[in-house]
């Protein structure tokens, strides 16, 4: 504040110069930010938010206890299993880096060939580098029908 009081005419010009360049830089930056945000929105994938939909998968009578079904629901590969009356829907997308951990009936395990991740019959990690169990989709049973809530993927398998 002291400096301001003691300013010389020369310094006043400098200050004005500074303000003008600052304002110019700010306006240019604003143009850049706004245009950039338009560009960002253009390239940001439209399908980034995936709605979850509840789909009718099968009926309980076709999935008696102790049985298993591999099916495609809304672009997701799902293994439906009925264990003593409890129905679960397990996703086969490996939790490591996204390859397909296919259900192998013979060994009763989910096996991902990419980095040899192995999951047990409940989707729990048996061995391999994967960080967590296979994802599960919510299952609801309404009047004998099995509904599974899955993300609605476009174009994905």
């Amino acid at each position: 504040m002291d400096e301001e009081k003691n300013k010389t005419p020369d310094q006043a010009v400098t200050r004005r110069d500074f303000l003008v360049s600052g304002a110019m830089a700010t306006s240019l930056a604003a143009v850049g930010v706004v245009a950039g945000s338009f560009g960002w929105q253009f390239v940001y994938p439209a399908a980034a938010k995936i709605p979850t939909v509840q789909v009718l998968a099968t009926s309980l009578s076709k999935l008696p206890p102790g049985t298993r079904k591999v099916m495609k629901l809304g672009g997701n590969e799902v293994v439906l299993m009925n264990t003593n009356g409890t129905v679960r829907a397990i996703s086969t997308v490996c939790t490591h880096l996204g390859c397909r951990a296919a259900w192998e009936e013979g060994r009763q395990q989910f096996v991902c060939p990419c980095h040899t991740g192995i999951f047990d019959v409940n989707g729990k990690v048996v061995s391999g580098p994967q960080p967590r169990a296979l994802d599960e989709f919510a299952v609801e049973i309404k009047s004998g029908n099995v509904y599974v809530a899955v993300p609605q993927k476009e174009g994905a398998g």
């Binding site: 439209a46 980034a48 993927k153 174009g155 994905a156 398998g157």
Partner: peptide
Amino acid sequence: LQMIRGGVAVTAD
């Protein structure tokens, strides 16, 4: 991830 893939999974985009 989504910027590189142009979507949730690997697609045409």
